[in-house]
Design a protein around this nucleic acid. Structure first.
Lengths: 335, 335
DNA sequence: CTGTTAGCGCCTTCAG
DNA sequence: CTGAAGGCGCTAACAG
């Protein structure tokens, strides 16, 4: 299995080229001064022998892996897929590879991933929408050289941050306000379970209350950020509380689940029931009726996160943040 | 930047525990015979010092990276995201990490990725729906120890394979047949550009011809496997050929693009125009009308690909294939 | 059951 | 401009 199938080494190249290993190393790394003649010659030998430097050996001595990790709750959620793409593109540009860790919305797995990932594996880490409690997350981040956190705030000495302008995902509050303003009276909320970045039910109720609306905790539930979970939760919610005339979903997948449950329950959207989502995935614009939601620059989030990470990896540990703007997109599910 | 921030090494542990480095190594790897007493003692010291073995050093000597790579044309396509999840889950179970390379449907980038990835980076590679021409792909695969190819056939000595039961993605043919059987007369086809696994336009036309239907190359176009591309292509196709009464999309994203273009062009689906997709992504069942498509076990594809890869990584280079079944799912877009 | 020796393939440091 | 020595952190192969 691990037969070193006659790997061509730096020394082979050196011997073949009649120079010292050090010269070859210099040619590869474009470092030090080398005469054009020998450089060309060495290059030719490298090409002829199809020599490729060993990453492991190089990493061992330079302490750089040329890899970054992206930790994500669910790569299957188009929201995260876009972010990852944004990361990957910039990484590729800079010659880095991306290690993808999917935690499947599972705290234990996220914890395990973060504690296993040490400096000899990866030069930096991007943590998206961590589901870990603060203390745990902070402690784990502290172990690492360079970290960027997406959709979460952390102490400024620990990591740079990419997040929405409205702290703590005030999106749901804005959605509630919008629904109130457009004449809805009995508004429900499906909060994302485990998301440390989602508006708490209490805040949501307070917000509704401040508009003079009835604020009923029974109209709120929690569910995982998946379509299935949103669908199931909406079924119970709608069965128990047919009086609802609007529901806010924690993200688009959940909102789409609500939409389906509503249609199946014979509700007319938006006539009987208005629905607002959260992150404007492609799906949101394609369903009928299309979903009112918030636009979020997902690709850009990933791209900027990578950019901030590279700055940290460079040794520049200054705290930076990239603030993105979430804008309400009115579509027919809540016009 | 690459300051070796006082890494705790095996030797530190050994010194601290008053044993030889080798003993510590044995404890870490659970190898050789060691008295329970020393084992426990060493474990305690490891914990106290928070020692973590260096992957790089280990890789250098064992020649194993404990990483596998997944190469994908577009992680943003839910089809691939599911596959990647299937891979990641099994990899995690076996203690492996996943390197994700996104080629963005770009042949040059795929080529570059494959040629840069050498044995010292990764222990095995899963290539999904490669867009490279055969010779190029084969040559690149040959460079690597362990490879599994998804949705493509390759010479049996090069790699194991996961693919659909119907060779060369006969899906489009089946879709054409189905549409013919359900009374459609003028059937168009949006073939996936660059996909080496898609049915060629000629085959498609032949198939229609064999049903006594008109087979018109002008009714066929090629487009990239994205929603946008399908939408744009369908717009032109429908404008030029309003006589079409059905269109087959190369995959679901494309089919959804067709659906949108059709609706915007004032066509009634399925009344005026029937549409069939290709891989049953979540979206397909949520749009109105829901899309007739083929179910494809995406998660399983990824999982089995990883399984076959691990077999190869074990040194067992026997050719294996996993054949999955694509089943037509009749929904309202082509009832 | 435990220790010793000798590298893995490369780069840093210091001499020429 | 080029080379020689030494070591990064770990494990394989032998000893005892």
């Amino acid at each position: 299995m691990n037969q070193r199938r006659d790997r061509v080494t730096l020394h082979d190249v050196a011997r073949e080229a009649g120079v010292s290993p050090m010269t070859v190393s210099r040619v590869i790394n474009n470092t030090g001064r080398i005469s054009d003649a020998t450089r060309e010659h060495v290059r030719a030998v490298i090409a002829r022998l199809d020599y490729r430097p060993s990453r492991a050996a190089r990493t061992l001595v330079t302490n750089q892996t040329m890899m970054i990790a992206v930790i994500t709750p669910d790569i299957t959620n188009p929201y995260f897929a876009e972010i990852v793409k944004g990361v990957e593109d910039l990484a590729w540009e800079r010659g880095y590879s991306v290690l993808l860790a999917n935690t499947n919305e599972n705290q234990a797995r996220e914890h395990a991933v973060l504690s296993q990932l040490e400096d000899s594996t990866v030069d930096g880490i991007i943590i998206c929408s961590s589901r870990l409690p603060d203390d745990d997350l902070y402690a784990l981040i502290e172990q690492h050289q360079a970290v960027v956190v997406v959709n979460r705030q952390v102490p400024k000495h620990l990591a740079s941050v990419v997040k929405g302008r409205d702290a703590l995902g005030v999106r749901a509050l804005r959605a509630g306000r919008y629904l109130a303003e457009t004449g809805h009276k009995r508004i429900g909320y499906l909060r994302l379970k485990r998301s440390q970045w989602a508006v708490e039910v209490e805040q949501f109720l307070d917000e509704l209350g401040s508009f003079g609306l009835e604020a009923n905790p029974d109209w709120c539930m929690q569910c995982l950020p998946t379509w299935e979970a949103g669908y199931a939760a909406a079924q119970t919610l709608l069965a128990r509380h047919p009086e609802l005339d609007a529901i806010v979903g924690g993200n688009d997948l959940v909102a789409l689940g609500i939409l389906r449950a509503a249609v199946e329950a014979g509700r007319h959207v938006p006539g009987d029931l208005a629905i607002v989502g959260g992150d404007d995935i492609l799906l949101a614009s394609l369903v009928t009726p299309p979903l009112t939601t918030f636009h979020v620059p997902k690709y850009e989030i990933g791209n900027r996160a990578a950019d901030l990470l590279f700055k940290r990896m460079t040794g520049d540990l200054q705290y930076r943040e990239h603030i993105y703007i979430e804008t309400l997109i009115r579509r027919d599910s809540a016009p």
